Structures are given as structure tokens and as C-alpha cells.
Amino acid sequence: MIVPYECRCGSSYAPTADRWRCDCGGLLDLPLGAVTWPPRAGGRSMWRYLDAGDLPWRDITLGEGDTPLIEEDGGMHLKLEFASPTGSFKDRGAVVLVALARALNASRLVADSSGNAGTAVAAYAARAGIAAEIFVPAGTSEKKLHQIRGHGAEVTVVEGSREDTATAAAARVEESGAFYASHVYNPYFHEGTKTYALEIFEQLGGAVPATLVLPAGNGTLVLGAHRGFAELRAAGVIDRVPRIVAVQSELCAPLAEAWTAGRDEPEPVQPGHTLAEGIAIADPARGSRILAAVEDSHGAFVTVGEDEIAEAHAALAARGLWVEPTGAVSYAAVRRLRAEGSPLVIGGTIVAPLCGSGLKASL
């Protein structure tokens, strides 16, 4: 599974513990593969879908993946990612990154996060026996900070924006030589999140849903889900990827604004204070890639307001589903689009994730 990184400038690099970007400063990607289907028999974790190669995942796995897919409201399915071991979908990517760090003999890792990625990286780093430092922005849920510290990781709180937090983490990586376990910069994270798509395809009996409704901040689930279905397409298993409707908060919507304006790159925005703290990313580093993935799927970007997020959160709770506020944005978008009679959610199966547990953060 360990394949070289690629940059759009044409450079490629064998993964090393200190490599997290191209010498030109560009982002690193992985080449698109053709997924092997059907997945391996035996076990129910996400690893049955991956060619793990030399990654020592068996030493650190918590059984991540295989989250329930339940039907709600006729034709809509909710994937309960909050049932993941640390309470969010970020486990899928974090376990791959930490396994990679261990394979590369990293002795220390650094990550930056609004909370969920940090808790996931901290948990798997603890199992791998690797020291971890997690950078978080001021205002991060105390419940998430408690979880990170509980796993033994050092927490560094940054006074400033989510982007300031990433800058501080990158500076620590440069000065220390630590492995940068970044869900934004390291494309191996998407090898984990693509299993979200592969599980849906299998759970639906080998059917491609009409629409995936996904939250979009740094885009790790959008990019991973698109990658999973694109690799099924490349293998000739399916002939199309599902439409992706990417959802942002009205108070922080650089991707949605770029989409509406017809731009290939988002421009930074000044974020407002939103309930959806997990996707409040004012300047997403992989913005052009997120926009391209949604375009390839013939999808769209939509935004939801604070009242809509709160109402969707309450509606989910009334159905027995307790999620953090960010976890309600996809459901909020579906409710709105259905009320408007939008063609984005008419005809065929709709799948939306409930990304994070309500035990991590609340209204």
C-alpha cells in the first residue's frame, strides 16, 4: 500500500517520516488506483477493503469501519459514523496515518485539528506507542480536549483561527522533524476515508446511491468518498460515481462561494461563529481538489443556517440519534432541499453521514 507521493509539478517522493509537502511547496497526492472487488472475506473492519501492504495496522486497529447504515424518511440512509471507536469518521484516516508513521519509524507525530481528527490521532498514536502533540484552536470543545489528553497526547492550544492552528503545527513539524499526521496535507488519510464509500456500496447490495450529502470543511470525507467510488469506476465495477452534495455553514462557506462564482479555487473568507465548528475552515488547503471532485460527480455545494443546524440536531435527537452539531449539517441540508423540491434529492437513494458523537460537543 505504501506508494510514492505525487505533486502536480511532476515531482514524486517515497514516503519518509519527515516528508509532508513537495519541495515546490505544493500539496502531495496519491495516484488513483482501481479497487479490488469484492473485498476480502473475514472480519468486518475497514481493512478488508485495503491493500495494507507493509502497514502494521493489526497492532493498532480498534476495529474501525463497518458503521451502521440505517434507513430514515423513505429513501434516505444515515451512516452512523459516530459509532466509530473514538466517536467520529476521522478514525478511518487517522489509523492509516499512524500505521504509516509507525512503518516509517517515526518517534513523534504532530497533528492539528478542530477536535475530532486530534482525538483520533491521539488514540491511535497511544496504541502505536508514538508520542503525539495535537494543536487545536482556542474554543475547541472541552470534551474533545479531555479525550485527547486522556489518550496521553500533549495539547497545544492556539489563540487564533483554524488556519493559525495549522500554521503553528507545521512550524513545530519543521523545527522538530516530527511526522506530520495531517488529515489535510497527508493524502494517505484519504485511503482511510475512501472506505466510507466502499462500505456504502457493499451495504446497499452493490448499488450506487443517487446522492451523497457530505459536510465540507477541509474536505477529507468528500475527497475520500469520491476516491472510493472513482476507484470502483476505474475497476469497471460501476459506471458512475454518485452525485456529491457538499454542505457548508452559511457563516463559513469559501467552497460554496467559489462554486457559485464559477471559480476553480476558493478564496479565504472571514468566518463567523458557527455551531458547525468542525467544518469552519476559512481557507481549505485542498479547495481546488474538493471543487473538482464535486464537479466530477455532477454535484453541487449548498449552505445551511444556524437555525437549520439546531433544528436538524433536535430532529435527530428525537429519533434517538445524538450527534455533535457539526454532525447535523448534512441532515439539515437534506431537510431543506426536500422542502424546496430540489432535484438534488429527488429520485434514488440518498446517503448522509452522522459524523461525530454528541458526547464530544453539544449545542
Results as ranks from 00 to 15, higher is better:
residue 2 I to C: 04
residue 3 V to C: 02
residue 3 V to W: 01
residue 6 E to A: 13
residue 13 Y to F: 09
residue 14 A to L: 14
residue 16 T to L: 00
residue 21 R to N: 07
residue 27 L to C: 00
residue 27 L to D: 05
residue 30 L to V: 09
residue 31 P to T: 15
residue 33 G to Y: 10
residue 35 V to P: 06
residue 36 T to H: 07
residue 36 T to W: 00
residue 38 P to E: 11
residue 41 A to T: 09
residue 44 R to T: 14
residue 44 R to C: 04
residue 46 M to H: 09
residue 50 L to C: 12
residue 54 D to G: 08
residue 54 D to C: 00
residue 58 R to W: 01
residue 60 I to Y: 07
residue 62 L to V: 04
residue 67 T to E: 03
residue 69 L to C: 02
residue 83 A to D: 12
residue 83 A to K: 13
residue 84 S to M: 15
residue 85 P to M: 12
residue 86 T to Y: 00
residue 89 F to G: 05
residue 89 F to V: 06
residue 89 F to Y: 11
residue 91 D to K: 08
residue 94 A to Y: 08
residue 94 A to E: 01
residue 95 V to I: 05
residue 96 V to L: 10
residue 100 L to P: 03
residue 102 R to I: 05
residue 103 A to M: 12
residue 108 R to S: 00
residue 109 L to N: 06
residue 111 A to P: 00
residue 111 A to D: 04
residue 113 S to R: 14
residue 115 G to T: 08
residue 116 N to P: 01
residue 116 N to S: 10
residue 116 N to G: 14
residue 116 N to M: 12
residue 117 A to V: 07
residue 121 V to Q: 00
residue 122 A to C: 05
residue 122 A to W: 05
residue 123 A to K: 06
residue 134 I to G: 06
residue 135 F to K: 07
residue 136 V to F: 09
residue 139 G to Y: 02
residue 143 K to M: 11
residue 143 K to F: 10
residue 143 K to V: 14
residue 145 L to K: 15
residue 147 Q to A: 15
residue 148 I to M: 15
residue 149 R to C: 05
residue 149 R to N: 05
residue 152 G to F: 09
residue 154 E to Q: 09
residue 156 T to W: 08
residue 156 T to Q: 13
residue 158 V to M: 04
residue 161 S to R: 09
residue 161 S to H: 08
residue 164 D to T: 12
residue 167 T to Y: 01
residue 170 A to L: 14
residue 176 S to G: 02
residue 178 A to P: 01
residue 180 Y to L: 13
residue 181 A to F: 04
residue 182 S to N: 02
residue 187 P to F: 09
residue 190 H to C: 06
residue 200 I to K: 00
residue 201 F to Q: 14
residue 201 F to E: 03
residue 207 A to N: 13
residue 209 P to W: 07
residue 213 V to C: 07
residue 215 P to V: 09
residue 218 N to Q: 13
residue 220 T to Q: 15
residue 220 T to W: 10
residue 221 L to A: 01
residue 225 A to M: 06
residue 228 G to C: 05
residue 229 F to T: 02
residue 230 A to Q: 10
residue 234 A to R: 15
residue 241 V to W: 10
residue 245 V to N: 06
residue 251 L to T: 10
residue 261 A to D: 05
residue 262 G to R: 12
residue 263 R to M: 13
residue 264 D to I: 08
residue 265 E to R: 15
residue 271 P to F: 11
residue 272 G to R: 13
residue 273 H to C: 08
residue 275 L to C: 00
residue 284 P to K: 11
residue 293 A to G: 09
residue 295 E to Q: 15
residue 301 F to D: 07
residue 303 T to Y: 02
residue 304 V to L: 12
residue 307 D to C: 03
residue 312 A to Y: 06
residue 314 A to L: 06
residue 315 A to H: 07
residue 315 A to P: 01
residue 315 A to C: 03
residue 317 A to P: 01
residue 318 A to Y: 00
residue 319 R to W: 09
residue 320 G to C: 13
residue 321 L to Q: 07
residue 327 G to A: 15
residue 331 Y to N: 06
residue 334 V to Q: 01
residue 338 R to S: 12
residue 341 G to N: 04
residue 345 V to W: 01
residue 346 I to Y: 11
residue 346 I to A: 10
residue 348 G to K: 01
residue 349 T to E: 14
residue 351 V to R: 11
residue 352 A to D: 07
residue 352 A to Q: 07
residue 356 G to I: 14
residue 361 A to D: 06
